[in-house]
Design a binder for these strands. Structure first.
Lengths: 108, 108
DNA sequence: CCCTCATAGGTAGGTTGGCTACATGTTGCC
DNA sequence: GGCAACATGTAGCCAACCTACCTATGAGGG
């Protein structure tokens, strides 16, 4: 999968995995990997900046903890983030319709 | 629709509209607009550089003509472009599966 | 004891492609 | 005369994703 493809689609995906329960960064990476069937293996240089961006934007809130001697920063969805996720899902449907409308062999 | 969303997905869409018949830039714009149900209204600053990029890459070949006093540059798909389009369509299916696998409410 | 892997977090800097804004010229219609 | 539609293009901005790098702990094998 090309790198650019993800552009603008990553944010809702991140928000989606923390929707059900708060997760820390590493666990988010694993969740994305699992839910994508092994396709979405984000480098840390993508994920961590993205999380900070989403927190700055107010869509996520974070909290530090220590588990088994390791520091974790756990992110949870804010109410603003939930709205963003909902609209992101809607945007995805629109986007999908656009791409498929164009890509479809076209019945003329 | 956010601007970034298009990143990396535009190329196959352009190739797709010239698949059936060669078209000039302006006509490609209109075709995209129509096939997308009015959603995909590309600025010229996006389309024309993209066409040149695709030609440089060997996926499109162009030819000048004059119709009704107006100069047109008509693009047609090369065989290399056809391959690219096919793989782009496949990539789209993969990408769609990834996004929807992650976005889906998740049955846990 | 040491090495390596998995776990856990992060930054700096490069790339790139879609965007805004601008520039040019024609035809056709009011 | 003026404006919309037709037609093509460039320069430069910016955001986001990437590569490459850094730090640190715990667990397991040799």
């Amino acid at each position: 999968m090309k790198a650019d493809a993800l552009r603008g689609h990553l944010d809702p995906m991140i928000l989606a995995v923390v929707e059900a329960e708060p997760l820390h960064g590493y666990a988010i990476m694993e969740a994305l990997l699992e839910r994508s069937g092994g396709e979405l293996d984000l480098p840390t240089g993508t994920l961590y900046p993205a999380l900070r961006r989403l927190e700055r934007a107010g869509y996520l809130a974070s909290e530090w903890s220590t588990v088994g001697g390791r520091k974790r920063r756990t992110y949870q969805l804010t109410s603003s983030g939930a709205k963003m996720l909902a609209s992101g899902k809607q945007d995805w449907l629109t986007f999908r319709a656009v791409v498929e409308g164009v890509l479809r062999p076209s019945q003329a």
